[in-house]
Amino acid sequence: MAAPTPTANHAQTAAWDGAEGAYWAANHDIFEAVLERYQPAFDRAAAIRPQHRVLDIGCGTGASTRAAATIAHRGHATGVDLSSRMIDVARGLAAREGLRNISFERADAQLHPFEPGHDVVISQTGAMFFDDPEAAFANLARSLRPAGRMILLTWQSADQQEWLDAFTLALTGRTPPQPPAGAPGPFSLSDPARVTALLERASFTAVELTAVRETTTYGRTVEQAHTFLRGLLGWMLADQEPARRAASLDALRATLATHATADGVRFESAAWLITATRS
């Protein structure tokens, strides 16, 4: 029997290889659609070539890995994630698309001994959950060839996200609190100065952050979005009495209805496209 894959971040491992990862795997089509409007800008920044070897960090169910493999058709794309269930879904989706130059592995990017010599490391909202980003980015630098490139998509600060304000206000009646600076989570890489310092200490140069704004999609219809978010954010309702909980869910449905379009239920968002080169 193979030895278990070592992990460093036990809290994130418990979440992503547990109930949270299972929910993402079960709702992969909606989760993958959330970021789909960022994909063109991300592809341009990544500048993947047909012969490239690409490493995708926090790949989830593999949308960005599949996109990379399609471009790098003479090379190879490897996706890694902490979630066993999401990796299983990613393998199935890649097989369904007939992609042969692609592989997936459950691994902790902070310490996994990646094969060196990759041309490009990519991550779409997957690099913000390291509990030791110094070690993680140093490890990713070692996975790259000299002058290899890293491209990250990370969220800008919480106060720039319409979706976060709207969902939290509807379900709790309050605006969301500011997350602790630098703590593992969606906004840990939102400060450009911190990001630049982290990457430069990890042997990256030419670090650039480009602001991008797109709408994010949470379902094709109001009812689909409501069901999806009720499952995803149900923890916000845990302490509410039944009548209050029902009112909160009604408020969420009303909020979603005001953002329904012919292309799905959409909210404004703001992200950073981060590019860096291994020295």
Rank of each mutant, 00 (worst) to 15 (best):
Q156V: 13
A135Y: 03
L153M: 14
P146F: 08
L140T: 12
A135D: 08
Q156E: 05
N139H: 11
I151D: 00
F129S: 07
T172M: 02
F137S: 04
M128N: 11
R142F: 03
D159H: 04
R149C: 02
T168Q: 00
G173Q: 09
L153I: 15
R142I: 14
F129Y: 06
A135R: 12
A138Y: 03
T154I: 10
P133E: 09
L171I: 14
P176D: 09
D132Y: 02
T172W: 00
P133R: 08
F129C: 01
A138G: 07
E134C: 03
I151E: 00
E162C: 04
R142Y: 01
I151T: 15
L140I: 13
L152S: 07
G173E: 08
A147S: 11
F167A: 12
Q161F: 06
A170I: 12
F167E: 09
P176Y: 08
F167Q: 06
S157A: 15
R174H: 14
P146V: 15
Q160T: 13
A136S: 12
R149W: 02
D131A: 07
P133D: 06
A170E: 05
G148Y: 07
G148V: 14
E162M: 03
I151V: 15
L171N: 07
A158K: 03
M128S: 09
F130C: 02
A138R: 15
L144P: 01
E134G: 09
G173L: 06
L169R: 12
R142V: 13
A158V: 15
L144W: 11
A158G: 02
D159F: 03
A147I: 14
W155G: 03
D159Y: 01
R145C: 07
R149G: 01
L140G: 00
N139M: 05
Q160E: 10
T168R: 01
D131E: 04
G148W: 05
R149I: 13
D132E: 04
Q161M: 05
F130G: 03
M128K: 00
F137K: 06
E134W: 02
A141K: 06
L153R: 11
R174V: 13
S143G: 11
R142M: 09
F137A: 05
W155E: 03
L153Q: 09
Q161N: 05
D132L: 02
D165S: 08
L144C: 07
S143V: 14
F129K: 04
A166L: 04
G173K: 07
D165L: 08
A141Y: 04
L144K: 02
Q160M: 06
S143P: 00
E162A: 05
L164C: 01
Q160K: 13
D132I: 09
F167V: 15
G148D: 03
P146Q: 13
P146N: 14
R145W: 05
L144E: 10
Q160D: 04
T175A: 07
A136F: 02
L152P: 03
D165Q: 05
M150I: 15
T168M: 01
A166D: 06
N139C: 07
T168F: 03
D159A: 12
S157E: 13
E162G: 02
A135Q: 14
P176F: 10
P133V: 12
A138H: 11
F137R: 04
F129M: 05
P146M: 12
L152N: 09
G148F: 10
E134H: 10
S143A: 15
L169M: 10
